[in-house]
Nucleic acid binder design. Structure first.
Length: 552
RNA sequence: GGUCCCAUCGUCUAGUGGUUAGGACACCGGCCUCUCACGCCGGGAACAGGGGUUCAAGUCCCCUUGGGAUCACCA
């Protein structure tokens, strides 16, 4: 079979466009195309291109594989593999979410694995923080820390024996070798090159590549990268990605202290844990070829890869702590709901027609890789706030009990001891479409929990002034005679205002400030009912005093 | 610099050759109104540029430009 270059290019495109079709066909194993979707070619550029033919005969090449595939593998095993950094990054949370959605939506498994091979960066606390973030978001895992599972341990630092075995195998097969060059030596060479030619890019010169003796002195282990050909794979999001092998150098897979590096540990674990879909940030797309080389060298099936476009700051650079909240814990601490956060995250790089608001069940049902976009995006605080708010507004998204519990937490934070859940419950309907977060909700309810409202100076100055004192007195007189019911109060006040010809505003605003200490609040009569007759009347009286004394 | 990737309103996006280019956030008007919100109605706002292919291109191809990622004994 031969193709013109145009044909080949077109075929590659077809591959890319088919990515969704393969995945969304539930009758097939989700990764039906996996075995044919990658190839390491060592025959030069032309051979590399030819591998484009592989994804096409879906019914051909993968047939044998399908027959041999255990039924259980028809559903995906997706992992999230964070490194413990002290908090769950919002971008990492999105990767976790997409992975989790795919696993849950397809009836597969979601595996959590901690990549703590870098001892300097990990600690018990930082692992706990990541786990906390996952738990708060409700991204539960079937295998991993705390829950265990048949493929444990789920901490890379506890799997060193395994990496050692595979490294030995790689060396025995001639795919890896010991390198005795020290970091200091290499750095010196790097410097020397830089001095000679500032623009030159240093590459490991292959000093130990063909060394025949293997003395037992400190060394790293390097993977022997093929010097020609191309490595390519079919990404679930990006389609076919093809890289020349000579763009790689013999990369280190084991450090002198015996600890594996990311690429090795990742490949060994993903294989040993039976992972079928590797989803991660697009910043990993560059070492995917290296990993595929290792899969091939070890004779293993290559999983599907799904690289996610990056979540950037509003300015377009890397989203870091400097740009407000990057840890999911921050969102919890600011009083948002996990579902609201998840909803925003889901819509970031993924879409489902014009729908903006989703329940987590809908997310599971609708999610698929072919609806994931390719372009990086900028985090938008305001859009996030809106999505989060939408979740707070709708009782079907945030139930009354959850709302009350969330608000109580923040009332306590404001210093109120065991605030009344009953009062919050009764006030709920008046704050649902006002509070942007539970923290905000607690602020809105603040004045109910104090003996005296905290008086806003501006509001007081503007409305509690001598001119309004008589209006407030009239108001007091009218409501004092009423049964304490919102409708009755409203009618009484409205009628009185109509009779006397006083502007409603001149009554309502001073009354509001007297009752709440603020110039903005939920409806006056609702507030009065929740406050109770006694407290309402005394606050109005107090307001009258303030008004009389103001300016005089 | 090499390699890889990306490109529709300010932002998140719909769009798979034929659309008045749709939605959401934000913004600007208006309505509602005891304030603030909510809600409702309306408005401005985008296919980076240039070549092809085609009867027809935001959609396919190429180039340019712009942006990003990555080139570690980090992950």
């Amino acid at each position: 079979m031969s193709f013109s270059s145009v044909d080949l290019v077109n075929m590659g495109r077809d591959c890319a466009r088919d990515r969704g079709a393969v995945c969304s066909n539930r009758a097939l194993p989700a990764q039906a195309s996996a075995p044919g979707s990658h190839r390491v070619s060592r025959a030069g550029p032309a051979g590399g291109f030819l591998s484009c033919e592989i994804p096409l005969p879906v019914a051909g090449f993968p047939l044998l594989w399908r027959v041999l595939t255990p039924l259980a593998m028809a559903t995906p095993r997706v992992r999230f593999a964070p490194s413990p950094s002290g908090y769950l990054h919002i971008g990492g949370a999105r990767t976790a979410l997409f992975s989790w959605l795919w696993a849950r939506g397809q009836g597969g498994q979601f595996i959590l694995r901690v990549e703590d091979t870098d001892q300097e960066r990990s600690s018990v606390d930082s692992v706990a923080a990541v786990l906390d973030g996952m738990k708060w978001l409700g991204l539960d895992w079937d295998e991993g820390p705390e829950v265990g599972g048949p493929n444990g341990p789920y901490f890379q630092s506890e799997r060193r024996v395994l990496y050692r075995e595979k490294t030995d195998e790689l060396i025995a097969k001639g795919h890896a070798y010991r390198c005795y060059c020290t970091k200091a030596e290499l750095d010196a060479q790097r410097e020397a090159l830089k001095a000679k030619d500032p623009k030159a890019k240093f590459r490991y010169p292959g000093t130990c590549r063909d060394r025949s003796d293997t003395p037992d002195i400190p060394h790293v282990v390097r993977f022997k990268v093929p010097s020609s050909g191309r490595t390519e794979f079919k990404d679930l999001v990006f389609g076919v990605v093809s890289t020349p092998n000579d763009a790689q150098q013999d990369f280190v897979i084991v450090r002198p202290d015996g600890f594996p590096l990311y690429n090795l540990a990742c490949v060994v674990d993903d294989h040993e844990m039976g992972i079928t879909v590797v989803a991660r940030g697009k910043d990993h797309i560059g070492n995917t070829p290296q990993q595929i080389m290792m899969y091939e060298a070890l004779g293993w099936d290559v999983p599907d890869f799904a690289h996610l476009p990056l979540m950037l700051s509003s300015k377009g650079d890397k989203l870091s702590k400097r740009h407000a909240a990057v840890g999911v814990q921050d969102y919890r601490d600011r009083g948002f709901t996990p579902d609201g956060v998840l909803n925003y995250l889901a819509r970031f790089g993924w879409s489902y027609g014009d729908q903006e608001i989703f329940t987590r069940e809908e997310l599971q049902k609708y999610f698929s890789w072919d609806r994931v976009g390719k372009a990086d995006g900028k985090f938008d605080e305001r859009k996030f706030a809106d999505v989060a708010f939408e979740h707070l507004k709708r009782p079907e998204l945030t139930g009354d009990d959850a709302y009350i519990a969330g608000t109580l937490r923040f009332l306590e934070k404001r210093g109120f001891e065991s605030p009344s859940a009953d009062l919050v419950a009764r006030a709920l309907s008046t704050i649902r479409d006002r509070a942007k977060s539970f923290e905000d909700a607690a602020w809105h309810l603040d004045f109910y929990f104090r003996d005296e409202p905290e008086m806003d100076a501006k509001a007081s100055k503007k409305f509690l002034k001598p001119d309004n004192a008589q209006h407030l007195e009239g108001f007091h007189e009218i409501v004092a005679d009423c049964d304490w019911d919102a409708e009755i109060l409203e009618k009484a006040v409205t009628d009185w205002v109509a009779e006397t010809g006083v502007k409603m505003k001149l009554v309502a605003q001073p009354a509001r400030v007297a009752l709440t200490g603020r110039s903005a609040s939920p409806g006056l009569y609702d507030v009065m009912v929740l406050l109770g007759k006694e407290r309402s009347l005394s606050r109005v009286l107090a307001g009258i005093e303030i008004a009389k004394q103001a300016g005089g």
